[in-house]
Design a protein around this nucleic acid. Structure first.
Lengths: 186, 186
DNA sequence: CAAGAGCTATCTATCGATAGATAGACGGAG
DNA sequence: CTCCGTCTATCTATCGATAGATAGCTCTTG
Protein backbone atom coordinates (compact mmCIF):
# COMPACT_ATOMS: atom_id res chain seq x y z
CA UNK A 1 0.00 0.00 0.00
CA UNK A 2 1.07 3.55 -0.48
CA UNK A 3 0.64 4.29 3.21
CA UNK A 4 3.57 3.37 5.38
CA UNK A 5 3.18 -0.38 5.52
CA UNK A 6 5.12 -0.60 8.72
CA UNK A 7 2.59 1.55 10.52
CA UNK A 8 -0.36 -0.31 9.03
CA UNK A 9 1.15 -3.57 10.21
CA UNK A 10 1.65 -2.23 13.70
CA UNK A 11 -1.89 -0.91 13.92
CA UNK A 12 -3.37 -4.23 12.91
CA UNK A 13 -0.98 -6.18 15.10
CA UNK A 14 -1.82 -4.12 18.13
CA UNK A 15 -5.51 -4.76 17.69
CA UNK A 16 -4.86 -8.46 17.28
CA UNK A 17 -2.69 -8.72 20.36
CA UNK A 18 -5.21 -6.80 22.42
CA UNK A 19 -7.81 -9.32 21.35
CA UNK A 20 -5.92 -12.61 21.32
CA UNK A 21 -2.60 -11.98 23.04
CA UNK A 22 0.98 -12.25 21.89
CA UNK A 23 0.71 -15.99 21.36
CA UNK A 24 -2.48 -15.49 19.39
CA UNK A 25 -0.75 -13.15 16.97
CA UNK A 26 0.00 -14.94 13.72
CA UNK A 27 2.10 -13.54 10.91
CA UNK A 28 -0.24 -15.11 8.39
CA UNK A 29 -3.42 -13.67 9.87
CA UNK A 30 -1.75 -10.35 10.35
CA UNK A 31 -0.50 -10.23 6.76
CA UNK A 32 -3.88 -11.24 5.42
CA UNK A 33 -5.61 -8.49 7.33
CA UNK A 34 -3.12 -5.89 6.15
CA UNK A 35 -3.27 -7.16 2.59
CA UNK A 36 0.33 -8.31 2.16
CA UNK A 37 2.19 -11.60 2.40
CA UNK A 38 3.70 -12.84 5.63
CA UNK A 39 7.18 -12.53 4.15
CA UNK A 40 6.58 -8.80 3.89
CA UNK A 41 5.80 -8.59 7.55
CA UNK A 42 9.08 -10.36 8.23
CA UNK A 43 10.80 -7.76 6.09
CA UNK A 44 9.68 -4.99 8.45
CA UNK A 45 9.94 -7.06 11.63
CA UNK A 46 12.47 -9.86 11.21
CA UNK A 47 11.21 -11.85 14.18
CA UNK A 48 8.01 -11.96 16.15
CA UNK A 49 9.90 -10.65 19.13
CA UNK A 50 10.90 -7.57 17.16
CA UNK A 51 7.29 -6.91 16.32
CA UNK A 52 6.09 -7.50 19.88
CA UNK A 53 8.72 -5.23 21.35
CA UNK A 54 7.93 -2.49 18.84
CA UNK A 55 4.25 -2.75 19.70
CA UNK A 56 4.81 -2.53 23.43
CA UNK A 57 7.28 0.30 23.02
CA UNK A 58 4.90 2.40 20.97
CA UNK A 59 2.06 1.52 23.31
CA UNK A 60 3.95 2.82 26.32
CA UNK A 61 5.10 5.93 24.45
CA UNK A 62 1.56 6.76 23.39
CA UNK A 63 0.34 6.23 26.93
CA UNK A 64 2.73 8.89 28.18
CA UNK A 65 1.40 11.41 25.71
CA UNK A 66 -2.24 10.61 26.33
CA UNK A 67 -1.95 10.66 30.10
CA UNK A 68 0.07 13.86 30.19
CA UNK A 69 -2.61 15.40 28.02
CA UNK A 70 -5.08 14.78 30.83
CA UNK A 71 -2.97 16.72 33.27
CA UNK A 72 -3.00 19.67 30.90
CA UNK A 73 -6.71 19.83 30.22
CA UNK A 74 -7.77 19.55 33.86
CA UNK A 75 -6.48 20.54 37.25
CA UNK A 76 -8.98 18.31 39.01
CA UNK A 77 -7.49 15.10 40.34
CA UNK A 78 -10.79 13.23 40.25
CA UNK A 79 -11.47 14.29 36.68
CA UNK A 80 -8.04 13.18 35.55
CA UNK A 81 -8.51 9.85 37.25
CA UNK A 82 -11.79 9.39 35.47
CA UNK A 83 -10.13 10.05 32.15
CA UNK A 84 -7.46 7.56 33.09
CA UNK A 85 -9.89 4.77 33.91
CA UNK A 86 -11.85 5.60 30.77
CA UNK A 87 -8.80 4.76 28.68
CA UNK A 88 -8.82 1.21 30.04
CA UNK A 89 -12.57 1.10 29.66
CA UNK A 90 -12.31 1.93 25.98
CA UNK A 91 -10.31 -1.23 25.33
CA UNK A 92 -13.20 -3.27 26.67
CA UNK A 93 -15.77 -1.36 24.69
CA UNK A 94 -13.72 -2.09 21.59
CA UNK A 95 -14.77 -5.71 21.15
CA UNK A 96 -13.84 -6.74 24.68
CA UNK A 97 -10.17 -6.07 24.12
CA UNK A 98 -7.54 -5.72 26.82
CA UNK A 99 -4.64 -3.48 27.62
CA UNK A 100 -1.80 -4.67 25.42
CA UNK A 101 0.61 -4.95 28.30
CA UNK A 102 -1.95 -6.46 30.62
CA UNK A 103 -2.56 -9.38 28.34
CA UNK A 104 1.15 -9.69 27.68
CA UNK A 105 1.84 -9.77 31.41
CA UNK A 106 -0.31 -12.86 31.60
CA UNK A 107 1.84 -14.40 28.88
CA UNK A 108 4.99 -13.43 30.74
CA UNK A 109 6.71 -16.81 30.41
CA UNK A 110 6.29 -16.94 26.63
CA UNK A 111 7.64 -13.48 25.92
CA UNK A 112 11.06 -12.84 24.41
CA UNK A 113 13.23 -10.80 26.73
CA UNK A 114 12.97 -7.63 24.66
CA UNK A 115 9.17 -7.76 24.81
CA UNK A 116 9.16 -8.40 28.53
CA UNK A 117 11.30 -5.34 29.08
CA UNK A 118 8.89 -3.10 27.21
CA UNK A 119 5.91 -4.52 29.07
CA UNK A 120 7.65 -3.68 32.31
CA UNK A 121 8.22 -0.15 31.09
CA UNK A 122 4.50 0.29 30.56
CA UNK A 123 3.94 -0.47 34.22
CA UNK A 124 6.57 2.11 35.11
CA UNK A 125 4.95 4.67 32.87
CA UNK A 126 1.59 4.22 34.55
CA UNK A 127 2.92 4.33 38.07
CA UNK A 128 5.02 7.39 37.35
CA UNK A 129 2.04 9.22 35.93
CA UNK A 130 -0.22 8.21 38.80
CA UNK A 131 2.39 9.46 41.26
CA UNK A 132 2.43 12.75 39.42
CA UNK A 133 -1.34 12.95 39.64
CA UNK A 134 -1.62 11.93 43.28
CA UNK A 135 1.11 14.36 44.26
CA UNK A 136 -1.00 17.31 43.16
CA UNK A 137 -1.81 19.33 46.22
CA UNK A 138 -0.82 16.58 48.61
CA UNK A 139 2.57 16.46 50.23
CA UNK A 140 2.51 12.98 51.75
CA UNK A 141 5.54 10.75 51.79
CA UNK A 142 6.57 9.81 48.28
CA UNK A 143 6.85 6.18 49.28
CA UNK A 144 3.22 5.96 50.26
CA UNK A 145 2.09 7.72 47.12
CA UNK A 146 4.09 5.39 44.96
CA UNK A 147 2.58 2.40 46.66
CA UNK A 148 -0.89 3.78 46.17
CA UNK A 149 -0.14 4.46 42.51
CA UNK A 150 0.92 0.87 42.06
CA UNK A 151 -2.25 -0.32 43.76
CA UNK A 152 -4.45 1.83 41.54
CA UNK A 153 -2.78 0.56 38.40
CA UNK A 154 -3.07 -3.05 39.52
CA UNK A 155 -6.70 -2.60 40.51
CA UNK A 156 -7.61 -1.06 37.16
CA UNK A 157 -5.85 -3.84 35.27
CA UNK A 158 -7.65 -6.39 37.40
CA UNK A 159 -11.03 -4.82 36.80
CA UNK A 160 -10.34 -4.99 33.10
CA UNK A 161 -9.21 -8.61 33.30
CA UNK A 162 -12.23 -9.78 35.24
CA UNK A 163 -14.66 -7.84 33.06
CA UNK A 164 -13.09 -9.30 29.96
CA UNK A 165 -13.31 -12.79 31.39
CA UNK A 166 -17.02 -12.32 31.75
CA UNK A 167 -17.40 -10.35 28.56
CA UNK A 168 -19.32 -7.73 30.51
CA UNK A 169 -18.14 -4.15 30.61
CA UNK A 170 -20.59 -3.36 33.40
CA UNK A 171 -18.33 -5.37 35.69
CA UNK A 172 -15.52 -2.93 34.97
CA UNK A 173 -17.72 0.04 35.77
CA UNK A 174 -18.86 -1.52 39.01
CA UNK A 175 -15.36 -2.30 40.15
CA UNK A 176 -14.10 1.19 39.38
CA UNK A 177 -17.02 2.73 41.22
CA UNK A 178 -16.33 0.51 44.21
CA UNK A 179 -12.67 1.52 44.17
CA UNK A 180 -13.78 5.12 44.36
CA UNK A 181 -16.29 4.43 47.11
CA UNK A 182 -13.64 2.65 49.14
CA UNK A 183 -11.26 5.58 48.75
CA UNK A 184 -8.67 3.81 46.65
CA UNK A 185 -9.33 6.16 43.74
CA UNK A 186 -9.38 9.90 44.43
CA UNK B 1 1.53 -45.17 36.38
CA UNK B 2 -0.38 -47.06 38.98
CA UNK B 3 -1.89 -43.84 40.33
CA UNK B 4 -4.99 -42.63 38.61
CA UNK B 5 -3.58 -41.29 35.38
CA UNK B 6 -6.45 -38.93 34.89
CA UNK B 7 -5.62 -37.14 38.11
CA UNK B 8 -1.91 -37.04 37.35
CA UNK B 9 -2.69 -35.49 33.98
CA UNK B 10 -4.90 -32.87 35.56
CA UNK B 11 -2.32 -31.97 38.16
CA UNK B 12 0.39 -31.48 35.56
CA UNK B 13 -1.96 -29.66 33.21
CA UNK B 14 -3.04 -27.24 35.89
CA UNK B 15 0.53 -26.34 36.68
CA UNK B 16 1.27 -25.83 33.01
CA UNK B 17 -1.76 -23.64 32.41
CA UNK B 18 -0.97 -21.54 35.46
CA UNK B 19 2.49 -21.00 34.02
CA UNK B 20 1.86 -20.66 30.28
CA UNK B 21 -1.86 -20.30 29.82
CA UNK B 22 -4.45 -22.35 28.00
CA UNK B 23 -2.86 -21.69 24.63
CA UNK B 24 0.52 -22.63 26.00
CA UNK B 25 -0.74 -26.03 27.08
CA UNK B 26 0.41 -28.69 24.64
CA UNK B 27 -0.77 -32.28 24.65
CA UNK B 28 2.71 -33.40 23.76
CA UNK B 29 4.49 -31.51 26.51
CA UNK B 30 1.84 -32.53 28.97
CA UNK B 31 2.11 -36.19 28.02
CA UNK B 32 5.87 -36.09 28.20
CA UNK B 33 5.79 -34.64 31.67
CA UNK B 34 3.30 -37.23 32.87
CA UNK B 35 5.20 -40.04 31.20
CA UNK B 36 2.60 -41.20 28.71
CA UNK B 37 1.86 -40.58 25.03
CA UNK B 38 -0.32 -37.74 23.85
CA UNK B 39 -2.86 -40.21 22.54
CA UNK B 40 -3.38 -41.37 26.10
CA UNK B 41 -4.17 -37.85 27.19
CA UNK B 42 -6.77 -37.72 24.43
CA UNK B 43 -8.21 -40.94 25.78
CA UNK B 44 -9.00 -39.28 29.09
CA UNK B 45 -9.84 -35.88 27.63
CA UNK B 46 -11.03 -36.24 24.03
CA UNK B 47 -10.49 -32.59 23.17
CA UNK B 48 -8.43 -29.79 24.62
CA UNK B 49 -11.64 -28.03 25.53
CA UNK B 50 -12.68 -31.02 27.62
CA UNK B 51 -9.41 -30.86 29.51
CA UNK B 52 -9.57 -27.12 30.01
CA UNK B 53 -13.12 -27.26 31.26
CA UNK B 54 -12.30 -30.08 33.66
CA UNK B 55 -9.35 -28.11 35.00
CA UNK B 56 -11.36 -24.96 35.57
CA UNK B 57 -14.22 -26.89 37.10
CA UNK B 58 -12.01 -28.64 39.62
CA UNK B 59 -10.18 -25.39 40.30
CA UNK B 60 -13.40 -23.61 41.22
CA UNK B 61 -14.62 -26.54 43.29
CA UNK B 62 -11.41 -26.67 45.26
CA UNK B 63 -11.57 -22.92 45.81
CA UNK B 64 -14.95 -23.28 47.46
CA UNK B 65 -13.61 -25.84 49.90
CA UNK B 66 -10.46 -23.92 50.70
CA UNK B 67 -12.21 -20.61 51.20
CA UNK B 68 -14.98 -22.06 53.31
CA UNK B 69 -12.28 -23.65 55.44
CA UNK B 70 -11.06 -20.15 56.29
CA UNK B 71 -14.45 -19.15 57.60
CA UNK B 72 -14.41 -22.12 59.90
CA UNK B 73 -10.99 -21.65 61.41
CA UNK B 74 -11.40 -17.94 62.13
CA UNK B 75 -14.16 -15.54 63.04
CA UNK B 76 -12.00 -12.53 62.26
CA UNK B 77 -12.82 -10.87 58.96
CA UNK B 78 -9.36 -9.41 58.56
CA UNK B 79 -7.67 -12.72 59.25
CA UNK B 80 -9.85 -14.51 56.73
CA UNK B 81 -9.11 -11.87 54.14
CA UNK B 82 -5.41 -12.32 54.73
CA UNK B 83 -5.74 -16.03 54.18
CA UNK B 84 -7.66 -15.30 51.01
CA UNK B 85 -5.00 -13.01 49.57
CA UNK B 86 -2.33 -15.49 50.61
CA UNK B 87 -3.88 -18.08 48.32
CA UNK B 88 -3.30 -15.84 45.33
CA UNK B 89 0.13 -14.99 46.63
CA UNK B 90 1.09 -18.66 46.72
CA UNK B 91 0.58 -18.94 42.97
CA UNK B 92 3.20 -16.26 42.46
CA UNK B 93 5.62 -17.81 44.89
CA UNK B 94 5.28 -21.05 42.96
CA UNK B 95 7.49 -20.08 39.99
CA UNK B 96 5.61 -16.87 39.25
CA UNK B 97 2.43 -18.69 38.33
CA UNK B 98 -1.01 -17.15 38.03
CA UNK B 99 -4.52 -17.96 39.05
CA UNK B 100 -5.75 -20.50 36.52
CA UNK B 101 -8.89 -18.55 35.77
CA UNK B 102 -7.12 -15.22 35.75
CA UNK B 103 -4.79 -16.26 32.98
CA UNK B 104 -7.65 -17.92 31.16
CA UNK B 105 -9.70 -14.73 31.39
CA UNK B 106 -6.94 -13.00 29.46
CA UNK B 107 -7.27 -15.68 26.79
CA UNK B 108 -11.04 -15.24 26.72
CA UNK B 109 -11.35 -15.10 22.93
CA UNK B 110 -9.47 -18.35 22.41
CA UNK B 111 -11.43 -20.42 24.91
CA UNK B 112 -14.01 -23.00 23.92
CA UNK B 113 -17.43 -22.16 25.30
CA UNK B 114 -17.37 -24.85 27.95
CA UNK B 115 -14.09 -23.53 29.33
CA UNK B 116 -15.34 -19.97 29.33
CA UNK B 117 -18.35 -21.00 31.35
CA UNK B 118 -16.21 -22.60 34.05
CA UNK B 119 -13.92 -19.59 34.20
CA UNK B 120 -16.96 -17.44 34.78
CA UNK B 121 -18.07 -19.72 37.56
CA UNK B 122 -14.77 -19.20 39.35
CA UNK B 123 -15.49 -15.48 39.44
CA UNK B 124 -18.91 -16.23 40.88
CA UNK B 125 -17.41 -18.50 43.51
CA UNK B 126 -15.01 -15.82 44.65
CA UNK B 127 -17.60 -13.07 44.78
CA UNK B 128 -20.08 -15.25 46.62
CA UNK B 129 -17.51 -16.13 49.23
CA UNK B 130 -16.38 -12.54 49.64
CA UNK B 131 -19.98 -11.47 50.11
CA UNK B 132 -20.31 -14.10 52.82
CA UNK B 133 -17.20 -12.78 54.51
CA UNK B 134 -18.08 -9.11 54.25
CA UNK B 135 -21.57 -9.76 55.52
CA UNK B 136 -20.24 -10.95 58.86
CA UNK B 137 -21.40 -8.49 61.47
CA UNK B 138 -22.34 -5.86 58.94
CA UNK B 139 -25.86 -5.40 57.75
CA UNK B 140 -25.35 -3.01 54.86
CA UNK B 141 -27.30 -3.28 51.65
CA UNK B 142 -26.50 -6.51 49.85
CA UNK B 143 -26.02 -4.67 46.60
CA UNK B 144 -23.19 -2.58 47.98
CA UNK B 145 -21.50 -5.56 49.54
CA UNK B 146 -21.66 -7.49 46.31
CA UNK B 147 -20.09 -4.60 44.46
CA UNK B 148 -17.32 -4.38 47.01
CA UNK B 149 -16.74 -8.12 46.78
CA UNK B 150 -16.37 -7.83 43.03
CA UNK B 151 -13.92 -4.98 43.46
CA UNK B 152 -11.81 -6.93 45.93
CA UNK B 153 -11.63 -9.93 43.65
CA UNK B 154 -10.70 -7.77 40.65
CA UNK B 155 -8.08 -5.89 42.64
CA UNK B 156 -6.45 -9.08 43.88
CA UNK B 157 -6.38 -10.55 40.38
CA UNK B 158 -4.87 -7.34 39.08
CA UNK B 159 -2.18 -7.28 41.75
CA UNK B 160 -1.28 -10.81 40.76
CA UNK B 161 -1.22 -9.93 37.07
CA UNK B 162 1.00 -6.90 37.48
CA UNK B 163 3.36 -8.69 39.86
CA UNK B 164 3.67 -11.57 37.44
CA UNK B 165 4.37 -9.20 34.57
CA UNK B 166 7.29 -7.86 36.52
CA UNK B 167 8.28 -11.21 37.96
CA UNK B 168 8.36 -9.59 41.39
CA UNK B 169 6.19 -10.90 44.19
CA UNK B 170 6.98 -7.83 46.29
CA UNK B 171 4.73 -5.88 43.95
CA UNK B 172 1.84 -8.11 44.93
CA UNK B 173 2.51 -7.55 48.61
CA UNK B 174 2.72 -3.80 48.16
CA UNK B 175 -0.52 -3.63 46.24
CA UNK B 176 -2.40 -5.73 48.80
CA UNK B 177 -1.06 -3.60 51.60
CA UNK B 178 -2.15 -0.47 49.80
CA UNK B 179 -5.62 -1.91 49.27
CA UNK B 180 -5.84 -2.44 52.99
CA UNK B 181 -4.54 1.02 53.76
CA UNK B 182 -7.07 2.56 51.43
CA UNK B 183 -9.89 0.64 53.09
CA UNK B 184 -10.76 -1.56 50.15
CA UNK B 185 -9.78 -4.66 52.11
CA UNK B 186 -11.16 -5.10 55.64
C1' DC C 1 -13.91 -73.96 36.33
C1' DA C 2 -12.87 -72.46 31.68
C1' DA C 3 -13.48 -70.02 27.45
C1' DG C 4 -14.70 -66.35 24.98
C1' DA C 5 -16.67 -61.52 24.61
C1' DG C 6 -16.09 -57.01 25.76
C1' DC C 7 -13.99 -53.17 28.20
C1' DT C 8 -9.95 -50.15 29.74
C1' DA C 9 -5.88 -47.98 29.01
C1' DT C 10 -2.18 -47.55 26.59
C1' DC C 11 0.78 -47.68 22.49
C1' DT C 12 2.68 -46.57 17.40
C1' DA C 13 2.02 -44.04 13.48
C1' DT C 14 0.09 -40.62 11.01
C1' DC C 15 -3.10 -36.83 9.47
C1' DG C 16 -3.97 -31.95 7.82
C1' DA C 17 -3.33 -27.36 9.50
C1' DT C 18 -0.59 -23.85 11.03
C1' DA C 19 3.43 -21.71 13.30
C1' DG C 20 7.68 -18.62 12.46
C1' DA C 21 11.21 -18.09 9.36
C1' DT C 22 14.10 -17.87 4.96
C1' DA C 23 15.95 -17.84 0.06
C1' DG C 24 15.66 -15.93 -4.13
C1' DA C 25 13.09 -13.74 -8.02
C1' DC C 26 10.82 -9.54 -9.68
C1' DG C 27 9.51 -4.84 -10.49
C1' DG C 28 9.47 0.02 -9.89
C1' DA C 29 11.91 4.38 -8.36
C1' DG C 30 15.81 7.34 -7.81
C1' DC D 1 22.24 0.23 -12.25
C1' DT D 2 21.03 -0.27 -7.77
C1' DC D 3 18.31 -0.51 -3.87
C1' DC D 4 13.85 -1.09 -1.61
C1' DG D 5 9.77 -3.44 -0.93
C1' DT D 6 7.03 -7.21 -2.03
C1' DC D 7 6.33 -11.48 -3.94
C1' DT D 8 6.43 -16.88 -4.63
C1' DA D 9 7.82 -20.93 -2.79
C1' DT D 10 9.43 -23.60 0.65
C1' DC D 11 11.45 -25.30 5.16
C1' DT D 12 11.25 -27.28 9.74
C1' DA D 13 8.71 -27.73 13.88
C1' DT D 14 4.68 -28.20 16.31
C1' DC D 15 -0.24 -28.21 16.95
C1' DG D 16 -4.71 -31.04 18.15
C1' DA D 17 -6.67 -35.07 16.70
C1' DT D 18 -7.48 -39.84 14.89
C1' DA D 19 -6.89 -44.78 13.38
C1' DG D 20 -5.71 -49.14 14.52
C1' DA D 21 -3.26 -52.55 17.32
C1' DT D 22 -2.48 -54.69 21.74
C1' DA D 23 -2.01 -56.20 26.51
C1' DG D 24 -4.58 -57.06 30.56
C1' DC D 25 -8.71 -57.14 33.21
C1' DT D 26 -13.66 -58.43 34.08
C1' DC D 27 -17.79 -60.40 33.31
C1' DT D 28 -20.88 -63.71 31.32
C1' DT D 29 -22.10 -68.24 30.15
C1' DG D 30 -22.02 -73.07 29.27
Amino acid sequence: MTADTRQVIMDAARAMVQARGYNGLSFRDLAKQVGVKSASVHYHFPTKGDLGAALARRYADEAIEIFDGFLEVSQDVGACMRMYTDVFRSALSNDNRMCLCGIMAAEHDDLPDEVRAEVGRFTDVNIRWLVKLLSRGKKGATGTIEQRALAIFAAVEGAQLVARGRGDIAIYDEAIEAYRAAGLLP
